[in-house]
């Protein structure tokens, strides 16, 4: 662990009405690194982002946020038609950085949405809104980007372009990125670290390692591993039918004391 981490979570446990959504999660994002969270529906991915941002209170565990400015793209944003709000105003509301027309235009151009500046936010299509949200997050000149499925609803070419942009922002400008994504192929290509989440951290590490991890394969199936060879690894825990962790003989329960993942 380095002292310069933008965000660091230890033993993060969140439950809603007695139902544990996150269990002892450990996470760290360093400047210039892309950390991607993958996992099935209901694995607690969005909740993990919200807990890290302080939007959801943790029952146990610690979150240290040393990032100065955070750019957040929520999984879903629904702006009702009753609110008259232009894209220009919405971007200017980001609050940090310059809000003149030229910089807003440039910000939209960057995400391939240069034509929507004068439109109303409620009139945007899902993909356009997603691009505007990313532009807004970037206009804040963040040192940390927290992105919850940032390319949802974006067309195929657009997705690749946006992932390239995110990678460029991270690797060229030193911005830390914490991202939830379902696009496993892209994730595996452009990510420095993958965290495979199923309420607890199943496995974490370099994409190639994770994609051969038995738990990753159990969650996503062998097809997700693509052409990568199966890598043998002794599994340190199993799962009961409800998904909770069961220690195997000689294995151990994940906790703050373990130093893998």
């Amino acid at each position: 662990m380095t002292a310069s981490a933008l965000i660091r979570a230890e033993g993060l446990t969140v439950s809603f009405r007695g139902h544990t959504v996150l269990d002892g999660v450990r996470l760290q994002v360093d400047p210039g690194r892309i950390v991607t969270i993958v996992g099935p529906n209901g694995a607690g991915k969005s909740t993990l982002l919200k807990a890290v941002l302080g939007l959801v209170a943790a029952d146990r565990g610690r979150v240290e946020r040393s990032a100065r400015t955070i750019g957040y793209v929520p999984q879903k944003l629904s702006v009702d038609r009753i609110l008259p709000l232009s894209v220009r105003r919405f971007l200017a509301m980001a609050g940090v950085g310059s809000t003149d027309k030229a910089s807003l235009d440039a910000g939209l151009e960057r995400v391939g949405a240069g034509h929507v500046l004068g439109r109303q936010v409620a009139d945007l299509s899902g993909g356009e809104l997603q691009r505007v949200l990313l532009a807004r997050a970037l206009l804040r000149r963040p040192d940390l980007l927290v992105l919850d499925e940032p390319v949802g609803g974006v067309d195929m070419t657009g997705q690749a372009e946006l992932y390239d942009l995110i990678a460029a922002v991270a690797h060229d400008e030193g911005v830390g990125v914490l991202m939830v994504s379902h696009d496993l192929h892209v994730v595996m290509a452009a990510t420095d670290e993958v965290v495979c989440l199923n309420r607890h951290v199943c496995c974490a590490g370099h994409p190639e390692t994770v994609s051969r991890h038995p738990e990753y394969l159990a969650l996503f199936g062998p097809r997700a591993a693509g052409s990568l060879a199966i890598y043998t690894h002794s599994h340190d825990h199993g799962h009961s039918p409800d998904g909770s962790v069961q220690p195997l003989d000689g294995g151990h329960r994940h906790g703050p004391e373990c130093d893998h993942g």
Binding site: L53, L77, M93
Partner: peptide, 8 residues
Amino acid sequence: VDEDLARV
């Protein structure tokens, strides 16, 4: 617009 976004 959005409470979470406003808080961040």
